[in-house]
């Protein structure tokens, strides 16, 4: 194996082991979308009428509608969770270990990112399996087509987490991320309601949703689950990934970024 792949394998293995060892995290990651699916969606089913919109060919129930959004939610939380663990690593010093390796920094950070994506995809498929057990089934091939979509959306959301971790200095600031990143991203997207539904209440809300990268991550997954391809969403997600990744590379560059603070937190 080349040195690059050796590092990739080791980092992925470590992140996966960490995830599996933290049972509560695994459980929370699964329970969260299931609560939405079973409780929230059931309540909303009656209140919300959905017309036939692509990629759906027939009327669908609300539970079916929100499944892709919940897949996106899993990845969003996972991206933020990796970001949290990066900030933790920075405080604890193990990030330094990574950054002083002789392999290029961008590659090591990218490995961290990929490892997080792998973990998030694992969670998404477990969630899809449980949803299927509740009778919320996608077309069989859709599960396969969703994989590349999940890789790209996972990368984009992971890169966002990486960017955030490069700007946050302390764990205490992390609660702010929840309020200012996760919630707006999730609620101002097509995860819970389609765009036209948003437009009914406010054009501005619709426009915000339409530029939110998370909307496009959800739509990419939604279309893929129905074996169709949403080029616009792919472009938007890919573009956001590049921007977030470039931002985090600057953030982690010693000449400008996060490391440009006093070492060791000394007075």
């Amino acid at each position: 194996m080349t040195p690059y792949l050796v590092a990739l394998w080791a980092i992925t293995k470590r992140e996966s082991l960490r995830f599996i060892n933290q049972r509560s995290r695994f459980l929370a990651a699964l329970v969260r979308p299931l609560v939405w699916l079973i409780v929230f969606a059931a309540g909303f089913r009656a209140a919300l009428g959905l017309s036939i919109i692509p990629p759906y060919a027939t009327y669908i129930t609300y539970e079916v509608y929100i499944v892709p959004g919940l897949c996106g939610m899993i990845q969003l939380f996972n991206g933020m969770q990796s970001s949290l663990s990066l900030v933790y690593d920075q405080e604890m010093g193990s990030m330094r270990l990574l950054l002083t390796s002789r392999l290029p920094r961008w590659w090591l950070l990218f490995c961290k990112l990929l490892a997080g994506v792998a973990v998030s995809i694992l969670q998404v498929y477990v969630f899809l399996a449980i949803a299927a057990a509740f009778g919320i089934v996608m077309p069989p091939l859709g599960y396969l087509y969703a994989l590349p979509a999940l890789v790209i959306s996972g990368l984009m959301l992971g890169a966002l987490g990486l960017l955030i971790s490069s700007t946050i200095k302390q764990l205490e600031n992390f609660a702010g991320v929840m309020n200012f990143v996760i919630f707006p991203m999730f609620f101002l997207s097509t995860a819970l309601y389609p765009l036209w539904k948003m437009a009914e209440s406010s054009e501005l809300l619709r426009d915000i949703c339409a530029v939110n990268p998370f909307t496009h991550a959800v739509e990419l997954i939604r279309f893929a689950l129905y074996q169709s391809f949403n080029g616009m969403s792919l472009l938007w997600v890919a573009l956001s990934f590049v921007v977030f990744m470039a931002g985090s590379m600057i953030g982690y560059d010693p000449a400008f970024g996060m490391t440009r603070k006093r070492p060791g937190g000394k007075p």
């Binding site: 194996m1 080349t2 050796v6 394998w9 080791a10 980092i11 270990l97 390796s101 002789r102 392999l103």
Partner: peptide, 9 residues
């Protein structure tokens, strides 16, 4: 893990 971070395997 550290050896792998240095690209050693």
């Amino acid at each position: 893990y550290f050896a792998a971070l240095q690209g050693l395997s």
